[in-house]
Computed example of a mutant assay.
Amino acid sequence: MSRPGPKIPPLSVTDAQRAVLEGWLRRRSTAQALAQRSRIVLECAEGHSVMEVSRRLGVAPDTVRTWRRRFLEHGLDGLGDEPRPGVPRKITDEDVERVIVKTLEETPKNATHWSTRSMAAATGMSQSTVSRIWRAFALAPHRSQTFKLSTDPLFIDKVRDVVGLYLDPPEKALVLCVDEKSQIQALDRSQPVLPMMPGVPERRSHDYIRAGTTTLFAALEVATGRVIGSLHRRHRAAEFKKFLAKVDKEVPADLQVHLILDNYATHKTPDIKRWLLAHPRFHLHFTPTSASWLNLVERWFAELTQKKLKRGVHRSVQALERDIRAWLADWNEHPRPFVWTKTADEILDKVAAYCHRISDSGH
């Protein structure tokens, strides 16, 4: 005669617990394991036996017993996963701090920056450990960036003036970013370019033949992204004056014209000043010295360089100019404005932070 098994304690849930369990079941983002455990507890709370719940949910009886017991002992917290056993942590917080401090405050004896290999040798850790620590704290000793702070005494006023035109342009006026991309070289490779093939990138000889240069004068319309362009073989005030005349011809006569440009000498010659006096609708706004990043046309020049000039092959200046004109025409068919988002205060605060870091650097 078989003896009955031990009685298991009844399982009941409060209204609050039931609301949480049913919420876990309904929520799409709930993990499947947690949803299943919630179903087990709710089924047991209805008075069903372990075997009945096992059959209804299609899980092993031991699984039902486990989560029934965990809920009785720990409540809702018992339905989470327990910490799993594993190899004890070998890298301590002190080890991590040592790598970070060494990366930020020291340099290796025979190099300008650390590598994972040199840091591993200096700390006694593995390269993979060093790499994981650097990734966790976004450290990349192999990378560097350049910057230059403007020493223009009117830097603040000029930044506010130019950024004000970007963010709050005047009515019945056109804001144009103007600059010259000079010394654009027509370069022909010394040997034919080998086209790209599956698994093999395009290949070109490292040396080239110079065929001459040209200069592109460009005015980027801030509102629409449209560009007025003009090519000249020389880069003087005379060519800049011709470009201004072209801009004057293409901009509707009823609009004021605000030009954002740099402090290049050809923009300030007596001849240019006389032309501006004769065309009073033109207003010049100069960017601070060493602050070309403030002129949006530089962003457009980067597009031209990256997409057309960098890998272009031209056997003559005429061929180069044809390609530039074609690219400019294609751009103006579907112009895309570059949207300025930074306020003048945000820019000045960032520059101030750089200045503070430099003054406190100890160098």
Rank of each mutant, 00 (worst) to 15 (best):
G362H: 10
Y208D: 03
I358R: 12
I260P: 03
P108R: 06
L231Y: 04
I40A: 06
S150A: 11
G75V: 07
F301P: 06
T343L: 07
F282H: 09
A45S: 15
H235C: 14
E94W: 05
N332V: 03
L296K: 12
D271S: 10
P201Q: 11
L294T: 05
Y208M: 12
L21M: 07
R68M: 11
A120W: 05
R160K: 15
I272Q: 03
L34M: 13
T92K: 14
F217P: 01
R27W: 05
S230A: 04
K342N: 10
Q185P: 08
Y208A: 12
V162C: 12
Q191M: 10
R3A: 11
S316V: 10
R68Q: 12
D152M: 07
M196G: 01
T213P: 00
R70M: 05
H279E: 03
R69H: 11
V200G: 02
I184E: 01
P6K: 13
P270C: 06
F155E: 13
A344W: 02
D81L: 12
A16K: 11
R236S: 15
V13A: 06
I347V: 14
A140W: 04
G47A: 09
G199C: 10
V20T: 13
M197F: 08
L220F: 15
L176Q: 03
V351C: 01
P288M: 08
V257A: 00
E73K: 10
V96M: 10
V41I: 13
S290H: 15
P61E: 03
I347E: 04
R210E: 05
R204M: 13
E321W: 06
A344R: 01
V297D: 07
K308G: 00
D330K: 12
L284K: 05
V193Y: 04
S144T: 09
R143T: 08
L25C: 13
R68K: 10
W331D: 02
D168G: 00
L284R: 05
H334W: 06
V178E: 01
S290P: 00
I358W: 00
A223V: 01
L79N: 04
P335Q: 02
D323R: 12
V162P: 05
M119C: 11
K273P: 00
S190H: 06
T103Q: 11
A19S: 13
W114K: 08
R69V: 02
S359L: 07
R68L: 10
M197G: 10
N332L: 05
V251E: 01
T224W: 05
E250D: 08
D248N: 13
S144C: 12
F147L: 12
G362Y: 09
T213Q: 10
I100Q: 07
E250G: 00
R18A: 14
C177K: 02
D360H: 14
P195R: 07
R299Q: 15
V178M: 07
K307R: 15
K90P: 00
T341R: 15
H142R: 14
T289N: 09
E52T: 14
R69S: 14
H142E: 14
R84W: 09
E298A: 09
T151L: 05
A353Y: 04
R84N: 04
V64F: 08
D188M: 10
T123I: 07
L216Y: 04
F338W: 14
L165M: 09
F301G: 02
A265P: 09
S115F: 07
T266K: 06
K172C: 08
L167I: 00
R160W: 04
S230N: 02
A136Y: 03
V178I: 13
K172E: 11
V101K: 13
A238T: 13
S2Q: 12
